[in-house]
């Protein structure tokens, strides 16, 4: 079997994470912020799976399952909030969220 260096997988995860971080910091549209958070969670899962593959244990894949569960719950609530914001204020600007009371 061939062997991928663990460093390169971790660097790939770090690059994907920082791309997602740039998206969260720079975008103003709330949909794109949610998409960037998804990218960051996926990169964290990639690091877990790489560590699990390094030591030939299934723990990394189990942790990825938990990250997947958390991401889907977060997306359900986040998209409901986006729909709420869009119908109430007709805007997807994250700056209008500071007027949200109750």
């Amino acid at each position: 079997m061939s062997a991928v260096p663990i460093n390169h997988v971790l660097i790939l995860a770090a690059i994907l994470f920082s791309v997602g971080l740039t998206g969260v910091l720079a975008r103003r549209n709330i949909i794109f912020m949610l998409v960037s958070v998804e990218v960051m969670l996926n990169a964290a899962g990639l690091a877990f799976v790489a560590a699990g593959a390094r030591w030939q244990q299934a723990d990394g894949q189990v942790m990825f399952l938990f990250i997947l569960t958390m991401a889907s719950a977060e997306v359900a609530v986040g998209l409901a909030l986006i729909l709420h914001l869009h119908w109430r204020r007709l805007s997807l600007d994250s700056d209008t969220l500071n007027k949200m009371k109750g």
Partner: peptide, 26 residues
Amino acid sequence: LSCILLALIIHAIMGEGSASVVTEEV
């Protein structure tokens, strides 16, 4: 900011020395 963070992470990862993932299926 992200590039600075990425450079720090890559520096930390490369300092550890290289080990290969032997891709046996789990």
